[in-house]
Design a protein around this nucleic acid. Sequence first.
DNA 1: ACACTATTTATAAAGATTACTATGTAAGAA
DNA 2: TTCTTACATAGTAATCTTTATAAATAGTGT
Lengths: 128, 128
Amino acid sequence: MTPQRQAILEYLVTEHSHPTADDIYKALSDRFPNMSVATVYNNLRVFKDIGLVQEMNYGDASSRFDFVTSRHYHIICDACGKVVDFNYPVLDEIEAVASQLTGFKVDRHRLEVYGTCPACQTEQAHKH
Amino acid sequence: MTPQRQAILEYLVTEHSHPTADDIYKALSDRFPNMSVATVYNNLRVFKDIGLVQEMNYGDASSRFDFVTSRHYHIICDACGKVVDFNYPVLDEIEAVASQLTGFKVDRHRLEVYGTCPACQTEQAHKH
DNA sequence: ACACTATTTATAAAGATTACTATGTAAGAA
DNA sequence: TTCTTACATAGTAATCTTTATAAATAGTGT
């Protein structure tokens, strides 16, 4: 557990945003002026492998990383990219159905809702 | 509707795989030896904009493209990357709940199930 | 034939992520 | 302490996917 590793983990735990690797890199560049981007990626992979952190890919943009606490889903704003958590009963049934229909051994699923966040809604309304 | 455009669309309709841009490019390189990769991307974007084709991003790998027929979900093999369709009632409720909880105006959602396909299951079993 | 518009090709460029190498650093054994 | 081993980091090059750009091409209508 190096200082850099601790700082990255700390950032993920305390910040409730869903930062990209670059967000983390920039946020910590004050405390670690010569930390490498590769270090951020390396540590994020370590955290992911042991299940502490979840990686989320959206389109062509950068991956976002989320410290895993409780089970929740994400809703993402198409306009500004903001990610917000929301709770919903875990969709176990769809996994069972998918497994039956396809013969796959199911491991997990991934669900995201897309739309426009309140802030961007008002901004778009003001454009008239 | 150029010959290249037609060929790309034809490939998406007839092949029931979920090809990447590069898959399409390679598959058509016999008939169009000097077609550019950019042409594939351009046309895929055109198809996507008019709603003929759906783009799917998985992790760091390339996007996959799916000709839109009926509403269905995807299950993806972690071992070989294969994508298989399966049918399930559309999850309208989760969109409503998410909207209520977050104040977002919901546009759509995205759901994928991950696991191991039958072929890779047997292959993994034979490794003992 | 001429102008206009859209498409293609070819290539450069961008952006995110990984690979690689050398350096550093901490822990353990002799 | 000193040597050794293992691993983390920094720095940079390389890779891969996708987009941007500019020139060439082809089609359509006048």
